[in-house]
Computed example of a mutant assay.
Amino acid sequence: MLPSSDLSAVVSRLRSAGCVFAEDEAALLVSTARTPAELAAMVERRVDGHPLEHVLGWAEFCGLRIAVDPGVFVPRRRTEFLVRQAVAARPGAGVVVDLCCGSGAVGAALAASLPGVELYAADIEPAAVRCARRNVPEGGQVHEGDLFAALPDVLRGRVDILAANVPYVPTEEVGLLPAEARVHEPIVALDGGADGLDVLRRVTGEAGKWLAPGGILLFETSERQAAVAVEAVARSGLTPRVAASDELYATVVIGSKLPS
């Protein structure tokens, strides 16, 4: 345990660097660092603009501690709403896929809430795949590749929950993101194309082939993009609906495949 005097010094350093939640961040850094030298290095990285989760090496998500390596997309707290929607809609799910998985946080959280599920995760980023393999529970599989091409073919028609954390920031708006995201997270996890929905359309176009009867596709989008996203889901043959959380500033589009 490091001296409590370190806490006030770290708070001052973070506050002077513009960290809005300096007290909370300082407490996490002080409790995580094993030595004064490690603490100093962590504080400098945070002051230089690295995401807090990259500095700590983990993020809290749905009550779990998720390992987050440098260069890997940081799971957002608002995405917990997507997890809750999935569990509420398919509490008896047997097969879960976490597509565009990043750290694997969504898949890990779904597996924790739905004991006994078959869990598969996939991402195109090698760093994300390595990180996700540390987070998914024993028995879960993590595959590297581009969307559905990464998944085992035997999953076609068997997926009960398909959670796709697709990028949805329009290309011209990526430069407006906070430096923590646009500098330290992979662009492929942020840039969704001209209107932000390019990857989403690719997912909705194929999702029906992979979902089991009664299975659901879930993805996040912005409130202003929701109407277009709903149209994409409907064109794919799935039945769309929108769920929103004012508390978490989250908008989730859900596409359901009709039971056979």
Rank of each mutant, 00 (worst) to 15 (best):
M1N: 12
L2C: 01
P3M: 06
P3E: 08
P3Y: 04
S4W: 12
S5H: 12
S5K: 12
L7K: 15
A9K: 15
V10C: 10
S12P: 08
R13L: 14
R15W: 10
R15N: 12
S16T: 15
G18P: 09
S31V: 10
S31T: 13
S31R: 14
A33T: 07
A33N: 06
T35L: 05
P36T: 04
A40K: 10
A41N: 08
M42Q: 12
M42I: 13
V43Q: 06
V43E: 10
V47G: 13
D48L: 15
H50L: 15
H50V: 10
H50R: 14
P51M: 00
E53F: 03
G57R: 01
W58K: 03
W58T: 03
W58H: 10
E60Q: 06
E60M: 09
F61A: 00
C62R: 04
C62D: 05
G63L: 04
G63I: 05
L64E: 04
R65S: 14
R65D: 09
I66C: 09
A67Q: 13
V68H: 01
D69F: 11
V72R: 01
V72K: 02
F73V: 03
V74K: 00
R76A: 03
R76L: 02
R77W: 11
R77S: 13
R78I: 01
R78W: 10
V83E: 05
Q85T: 14
A86C: 11
V87F: 09
P91D: 09
A93H: 07
G94P: 04
V95L: 06
V96F: 05
V97S: 03
D98F: 05
C100G: 05
C100R: 01
G102Y: 05
G102I: 03
G104H: 00
G107I: 00
A109C: 01
S113I: 06
L114M: 03
G116P: 00
V117C: 08
V117G: 02
E118T: 12
L119H: 04
Y120L: 10
Y120V: 13
A122W: 02
I124W: 06
A127W: 07
V129P: 07
V129G: 11
C131E: 08
E138K: 14
G140L: 08
H143G: 10
F148C: 04
G157Q: 14
L162K: 05
P170C: 01
P170G: 00
E173N: 08
V174D: 06
P178M: 12
E180N: 02
A181P: 01
A181Q: 04
R182A: 05
V183A: 14
V183T: 13
V183Q: 13
H184C: 02
D195F: 04
G196Y: 01
L197Y: 03
L200C: 14
A207Y: 03
W210T: 03
W210I: 02
A212H: 00
A212L: 07
G214R: 11
G215T: 03
L217R: 03
F219S: 14
E220C: 09
E223T: 12
Q225M: 07
V228N: 03
V230Q: 02
E231M: 06
E231R: 12
V233S: 01
S236E: 00
R241Y: 07
R241A: 07
V242A: 07
A243R: 15
S245K: 10
S245V: 11
E247R: 15
L248V: 08
T251H: 11
V252E: 07
V253I: 14
K257D: 09
L258T: 15
S260Y: 09
